[in-house]
């Protein structure tokens, strides 16, 4: 379970998160939507401590992320993250991209890491590309590599930060198919997304961010079918 309690964050005098409360249960798929700059990506990266917070608390399976005694590197093994920019390591083959952290962070043997990498690459349909360098991959393939790399660590939670935003429209579908498959397998996922149709389809709960606060949240039918606030209504009709 991920518990976000009264989280605030400022960049200088600009407050981007103004007291967020949100709890995500095991097995849930939560979609965070909202206009650019509303704070949703920032919050996502706070969950695994890549961004710091100004006040409040985030607790992952009973461990406080920003407690000084918490080993963040250790905690991050539980929290797979995939970014908008694909972030494949360009100097390593696709296979090595997946095995690097397995061997160096988890201490898995080379053989075992290779076996895990092959399973995960198979899962995202990239096994045939295992021994090429990421530059030889399309954007969609690089993004699926990012997903396989994160999944290989055996996380309990997956964080997706606008993973389709940098993709050409024709490549979005293949990445969404991978996410859909993950949700069907029962993975706990938090998605920051601009794909409203997709959020409506896979999310158990949709959270609407506006100017650093959660303006509205609920099941997708309610958020998209019967938005309460004028803001959300406007956002949903614009985003279509």
């Amino acid at each position: 379970m991920i518990e976000i309690k009264q989280v605030r964050k400022s960049y200088g005098s600009l407050e981007v998160l103004k007291g967020i409360d949100l709890t995500i249960d095991k097995g849930e798929v939560v979609a965070m939507i909202g206009p650019s700059g509303s704070g949703k990506s920032t919050l996502l990266q706070c969950i695994n401590g890549l961004e710091t917070i100004s006040s409040g608390e985030i607790i992952v399976d009973g461990v406080s992320v920003f407690d000084k005694a918490t080993n963040l590197n250790h905690l991050r093994r539980k929290l797979g993250i995939v970014f908008q920019s694909y972030n494949a390591f360009p100097h390593m083959t696709v296979r090595r991209n997946v095995t690097l952290a397995l061997t160096k962070v988890l201490g898995v043997s080379r053989d075992q890491a290779n076996a895990i990498a092959e399973t995960q690459l198979q899962r995202v349909g990239l096994l045939a590309k295992a021994d090429v360098y990421p530059t030889a991959l399309s954007g969609g393939q690089q993004q699926r590599l990012g997903i396989a790399r994160a999944l290989a660590m055996g996380p309990s939670y997956m964080l997706f930060d606008e993973v389709t935003s940098a993709l050409d429209p024709e490549l979005v579908a293949e990445v969404l198919a991978t996410l859909r498959q993950l949700s069907a397998e029962g993975m706990t996922m938090i998605l920051v997304t601009h794909e409203m149709q997709f959020a409506r389809e896979v999310a158990d709960r949709v959270v609407f961010f506006h100017e650093g606060v959660i303006a509205e949240s609920g099941p997708p039918e309610q958020i998209f079918g019967n938005p309460k606030s004028e803001r959300l209504r406007a956002f949903v009709s614009r985003a279509g």
Binding site: N48, L50, N73, H74, R76, R77, I81, F83, S85, N87, F89, P90, L100, A101, K104, V105, L106, G146, R149, A150, M153
Partner: peptide
């Protein structure tokens, strides 16, 4: 070296030293 790559390394649980050494 793109900050995003370094962030990705840390996101995988690598230490700061591993981030520098491998990326």
């Amino acid at each position: 070296v793109p900050g995003n790559l370094r962030r990705a390394a840390r996101g995988l649980g690598m230490t700061r030293f591993q981030e520098y050494w491998y990326v």
